[in-house]
Simulated assay, not measured.
Amino acid sequence: MPCESLVIKMSKIINVLLVGVGGQGTILASKILTHVALAQGYEVKMSEIHGMAQRGGSVVTQVRIGEDVYSPVIEAGEADIIVAFEQLEAYRWAHFLKKDGVLIVNTQKIVPLTVLTGAQTYPTSILEDLKGRVERYLELDGLKLATEAGNAKATNVVLMGVLSKYMDFQEESWQNALTEKIPAKLLELNKKAFALGVAEAK
């Protein structure tokens, strides 16, 4: 488990930003997080931003958790945790992180249409740049771990396993959320993916 100083304590409103591209399961991940927070007795506000999600465009979910939450909007520099499902999305949204916030980055690359057409180039030193800018930083190959669990599409659940170690919520609530949000035939696979994410954060 991350050292005590890395765990985000629920003494105030906690802002979590989940960023990825269409098809990566960011919305399901945010619903799992929301279920956990509600089960722990907190108020939750969530908003979604889709940028041609079905074509691999950006998908951003803002989740705010606390005793009294009045708005779902997270402003730049206010995110306690950013979970990036893809390198370039981490790069695009890193400025939303607080100075002492946690950045969790899946090292997967999904090349956007603008790069495929030659209009732009994919940055080559994203991870190195982020490491230099962010103090509380964790990167992992979530796709590899999901494949190990049995399905590459479980990358989102791997990342929720990592996230769980940075939030002051009970393990039981996470397991219950998986049971509620994951189809029964895929539950055991996703529980394995979640466990691999938990282990990656230790």
Rank of each mutant, 00 (worst) to 15 (best):
residue 3 C to Q: 11
residue 3 C to Y: 11
residue 4 E to P: 15
residue 4 E to Y: 11
residue 5 S to P: 05
residue 7 V to Y: 06
residue 7 V to D: 05
residue 9 K to D: 04
residue 10 M to W: 02
residue 11 S to H: 06
residue 11 S to C: 06
residue 12 K to C: 04
residue 13 I to N: 04
residue 14 I to P: 00
residue 14 I to H: 00
residue 15 N to P: 06
residue 16 V to C: 03
residue 18 L to A: 01
residue 18 L to S: 01
residue 22 G to A: 08
residue 23 G to V: 01
residue 23 G to R: 01
residue 31 K to P: 01
residue 32 I to K: 01
residue 32 I to R: 01
residue 36 V to M: 06
residue 37 A to S: 12
residue 37 A to P: 09
residue 37 A to W: 04
residue 39 A to L: 10
residue 40 Q to H: 12
residue 41 G to N: 11
residue 42 Y to M: 04
residue 43 E to L: 07
residue 44 V to I: 06
residue 45 K to C: 03
residue 47 S to W: 00
residue 48 E to Y: 00
residue 48 E to H: 00
residue 50 H to G: 05
residue 51 G to V: 09
residue 58 S to T: 12
residue 58 S to E: 11
residue 59 V to W: 01
residue 59 V to I: 08
residue 61 T to F: 00
residue 61 T to Y: 00
residue 64 R to D: 02
residue 64 R to V: 02
residue 65 I to L: 02
residue 68 D to G: 06
residue 69 V to H: 00
residue 70 Y to C: 12
residue 71 S to C: 11
residue 74 I to L: 02
residue 75 E to H: 12
residue 76 A to Q: 15
residue 76 A to Y: 13
residue 77 G to W: 08
residue 77 G to I: 12
residue 79 A to V: 02
residue 82 I to L: 06
residue 83 V to G: 01
residue 83 V to T: 03
residue 85 F to A: 05
residue 87 Q to V: 09
residue 88 L to R: 13
residue 89 E to P: 04
residue 91 Y to H: 13
residue 91 Y to W: 12
residue 96 F to W: 14
residue 96 F to H: 14
residue 102 V to I: 12
residue 104 I to A: 06
residue 105 V to D: 03
residue 106 N to P: 14
residue 106 N to I: 03
residue 106 N to R: 03
residue 107 T to E: 14
residue 108 Q to L: 13
residue 109 K to E: 15
residue 109 K to H: 07
residue 110 I to E: 14
residue 112 P to E: 11
residue 112 P to L: 12
residue 112 P to R: 15
residue 119 A to N: 15
residue 122 Y to D: 14
residue 124 T to P: 02
residue 128 E to D: 14
residue 130 L to F: 06
residue 131 K to P: 09
residue 134 V to K: 08
residue 134 V to Y: 07
residue 135 E to C: 09
residue 135 E to G: 09
residue 136 R to V: 03
residue 136 R to M: 05
residue 136 R to N: 15
residue 137 Y to I: 03
residue 140 L to Y: 05
residue 143 L to K: 15
residue 143 L to H: 10
residue 145 L to A: 10
residue 148 E to Y: 08
residue 148 E to D: 11
residue 149 A to M: 07
residue 151 N to K: 13
residue 152 A to T: 15
residue 155 T to D: 05
residue 156 N to Y: 01
residue 156 N to T: 01
residue 158 V to T: 13
residue 159 L to W: 02
residue 159 L to G: 02
residue 160 M to R: 05
residue 164 S to D: 03
residue 165 K to C: 11
residue 166 Y to N: 04
residue 166 Y to S: 04
residue 168 D to F: 02
residue 168 D to K: 02
residue 172 E to C: 10
residue 174 W to E: 09
residue 175 Q to W: 15
residue 175 Q to K: 15
residue 175 Q to A: 10
residue 176 N to F: 02
residue 176 N to T: 05
residue 176 N to P: 01
residue 176 N to M: 09
residue 179 T to A: 15
residue 179 T to K: 15
residue 181 K to W: 07
residue 182 I to D: 07
residue 183 P to L: 07
residue 183 P to R: 07
residue 184 A to S: 13
residue 188 E to T: 11
residue 189 L to C: 10
residue 190 N to A: 10
residue 191 K to T: 07
residue 192 K to I: 10
residue 193 A to N: 09
residue 193 A to C: 09
residue 194 F to Y: 14
residue 195 A to F: 10
residue 197 G to V: 08
residue 198 V to E: 11
residue 199 A to D: 12
residue 201 A to W: 13
residue 201 A to R: 14
residue 202 K to R: 15
